[in-house]
């Protein structure tokens, strides 16, 4: 591993020294080289840790039973028994979860920031609970308690997913709201004659866009990947289907389904990161002018 890191580190150090700039002192240069070497080792290990399983999955889903390269598994996916039902159920749950979460959390978080800043600690604590309490505990508590009409609808799951997604949504929104001078912006808008609704839609939300998007992607990833609750509530969502659709020849199709979900989430993440980046570049320039 180290033998890969050295030449790369060297290459970078040489590149930088080559730029028309006074040569750094020998000691500083050595330090820098060691630093970038470590950087690459860490990056490499972490990258391998994440990428090898994904690569293996991807490779597997692009093989047929005899091990040759083929798109067959992906082609078979839509027609696999139960897949489309599970797919659309997951999608509906995701959309309902997103809408309910946003409608619940955006006004709440803004209100806490504006009017109850001292409650932020408490909010943080409450919203972190779903991470501390295992989903199995939540669902095991809810199922016996929920009325029949709620249990017979898949949207009970959405209700639970709203709870599960709270930590992500609250944290993203909290960070987004802390990054702007919310109180001043709201007061400026109000004194210029904006109603509360227009203040929200034309001043707060546009400045919260990156935070909102990342909250939404995280929620989406969570809903599309959640297994425990869905399986105990007896609804066949994508993760449940992947486990159920388990025949000798189906391994490739299952893996293809997982990969599809992963790639979909990645595409969203990439979009968010690029929006976030341009946003943070803006704010960096802003602090530069103060």
């Amino acid at each position: 591993m180290a033998s890969i890191g050295v030449p790369i580190g060297d290459f970078i150090a040489n590149e930088e020294a080559g730029i028309d700039r006074p040569m750094p002192l020998a000691g500083a240069r050595k330090k820098r080289r060691r630093f970038s070497l470590w950087r690459f080792i860490v990056l490499f290990v972490a990258g391998a840790y994440f990428l090898i399983p994904i690569f293996a999955g991807l490779k597997f889903s692009l093989q047929d039973i005899s091990g040759r390269f083929s798109f067959q598994a992906i082609q078979n996916l839509p027609s696999a028994p139960g897949f489309s039902g599970a797919f659309w159920l997951s999608m509906r749950l995701a959309i309902v979860t997103l809408v309910v979460s946003i409608l619940l959390m955006v006004p709440t978080t803004i209100y806490v920031h504006l009017r109850l800043p001292r409650m932020r600690r408490l909010m943080e604590f409450i919203t972190i609970l779903p991470i501390v309490i295992p989903p199995i505990v939540i669902i095991a508590g809810i199922l016996p308690a929920a009325p029949l009409w709620a249990k017979s609808s898949p949207y009970l799951l959405s209700f639970l997913y709203v709870i599960l997604s709270m930590p992500f949504i609250y944290r993203s929104l909290d960070a987004g709201l802390s990054a702007i001078d919310l109180k001043t912006l709201v007061e400026a808008a109000r004194s210029l004659g904006a109603s509360w609704l227009r203040t929200l839609t034309q001043v707060i939300l546009p400045n919260l866009r990156p935070a909102l998007l990342s909250a939404m992607v995280l929620t989406l990833a969570l809903v599309l990947g959640e297994f425990t609750m869905a399986s105990l509530d007896l609804w066949t969502t994508i993760p449940v289907w992947i486990v159920q659709f388990n025949t000798a020849s189906s391994g490739h199709v299952q893996t293809a389904a997982s990969m599809l979900g992963l790639i979909g989430t990645w595409v969203f993440l990439t979009i968010i990161v690029s929006i976030d980046r341009s946003e943070s570049r803006k704010s960096r320039r802003k602090t530069g002018t103060l």
Binding site: I180, D181, T184, L185, E187, A188, A189, R190, S191, G193, A194, S195, V203, P206, N207, K282, K286, L290
Partner: peptide, 20 residues
């Protein structure tokens, strides 16, 4: 009368332009 209806022009101590 709410702030919205008061017709007051306020300039704040901190920078308060709408960033968007």
């Amino acid at each position: 009368v709410s702030a919205q209806k008061r017709d007051m022009g306020m300039v704040f101590q901190s920078y308060s332009l709408f960033p968007n």
